[in-house]
Design a protein around this nucleic acid. Sequence first.
DNA 1: TATTATCCCGGTACTATTATCGGGTCATGG
DNA 2: CCATGACCCGATAATAGTACCGGGATAATA
Lengths: 89, 89
Amino acid sequence: MVRLPLTPEEVERGQRLGSLLRLARGERSMLETALHARVSPETLRKIETGRVATPAFPTIAAIADVLGLSLDAVWAEINEPSVPEHRVA
Amino acid sequence: MVRLPLTPEEVERGQRLGSLLRLARGERSMLETALHARVSPETLRKIETGRVATPAFPTIAAIADVLGLSLDAVWAEINEPSVPEHRVA
DNA sequence: TATTATCCCGGTACTATTATCGGGTCATGG
DNA sequence: CCATGACCCGATAATAGTACCGGGATAATA
């Protein structure tokens, strides 16, 4: 085996990551945010929509930087299925 | 153009990332650390030796988790050419 | 010598990400 | 109606990451 396909868990985690980033972006436009983070607007959109499950570390770090997010907090959150403000149990 | 090649800056940052992780691993063996982080030992070795410049976010996050490193600190450090304990100016 | 453990390397395989292009939708406003 | 802005989508292109394989180097130990 080489380069195992993405697992469903990885895909779901990628979707949570995307939702988190989009939420944090708030009012700012994709274009502005992407240019600021020095990534392509298309790349940002794909990440936000969850179509990229395991983006590169520098990519996420740059975006988190622009959005003022802590990478540790991001990592912790996307590994928890539920959102803090929306805990079920 | 599509999927621009890695810039020299990215390569150097990747090498700093690798050095940082290897330093943080300390006495622990690669095998143990890799298994704990749920990544292939080959992948960990490539990252530590700087042969993978822009690893996936989950990969680095998992390794940093095992090593007890803060992702924010890691990101900040590898963007600074000099190492804290070795600051020149 | 032989064995074990740790790490390194090149080659190979195959998927994933990054990025551009062209087009599409929807809402707002002139 | 037309234009603009913001976002989304599929197709496409090319590089990069993840992973397995076989082999090799070194050091410590028996």
